[in-house]
Measured scan of single mutants.
Amino acid sequence: MSDQEAKPSTEDLGDKKEGEYIKLKVIGQDSSEIHFKVKMTTHLKKLKESYCQRQGVPMNSLRFLFEGQRIADNHTPKELGMEEEDVIEVYQEQTGGHSTV
């Protein structure tokens, strides 16, 4: 019986991991920090939209990076291997420009 009891508790931990929340720091170019608590399985588009709304800027005017890689709207913290207190960097999107060649 103890084996049966242990097995469901392991499964519960697996389920808990799926719905687990982590805190992420979003740091802007001006070094301002906003902290977000997100589920591991939530699409990061929600975090990006919330950040842009707080900053009063359109979402397409900023780019969000985690460990140097651009974050897509459909990425989740779990897919990117994010952990508690990880940092997302935000930069002004640069458009235009010309070749110097």
Rank of each mutant, 00 (worst) to 15 (best):
E20C: 05
S61Y: 14
G14I: 09
P8A: 12
S99G: 09
S50R: 15
K7E: 13
V38Q: 01
K25S: 09
T95L: 14
S99M: 08
Q53F: 15
R63G: 04
M40L: 14
E93L: 07
Q29A: 10
I88A: 03
I71D: 03
I27H: 15
L44C: 04
I71L: 02
E85I: 05
K7R: 12
R70N: 13
C52T: 02
A6R: 11
K25C: 03
I88R: 02
S32D: 04
M40F: 05
D3S: 11
T10K: 13
T10G: 07
S61M: 07
E18H: 11
G96R: 03
L13W: 10
G81C: 13
G28V: 04
E85F: 15
H98S: 10
A72F: 09
T41F: 00
D73N: 04
D30R: 10
T100K: 08
K17D: 11
A6K: 08
Y21L: 09
K45N: 09
G14E: 12
P8W: 07
E20S: 14
L44P: 03
G68R: 04
Q55T: 09
P8T: 06
R54W: 00
T76V: 01
K78D: 14
I34F: 15
D30H: 07
N60A: 06
H75N: 13
S50T: 15
K16E: 12
G81K: 06
G28M: 05
L44I: 04
R54T: 04
G97C: 03
L80Q: 01
T42Y: 00
Y51H: 02
K39A: 02
A72Q: 06
V38C: 06
I88F: 03
H75L: 06
R54G: 05
I88E: 03
L24R: 02
F36E: 00
D73K: 01
I27W: 14
H43Q: 11
R63P: 00
T41L: 05
E5V: 14
Q53M: 04
V57H: 01
A6N: 15
A6L: 14
K78H: 08
L13N: 11
Q92Y: 11
Q94F: 09
T100M: 09
G68H: 00
T10D: 05
V26G: 04
K17F: 09
F64Y: 01
I71W: 01
E20Q: 13
M59F: 14
K16I: 11
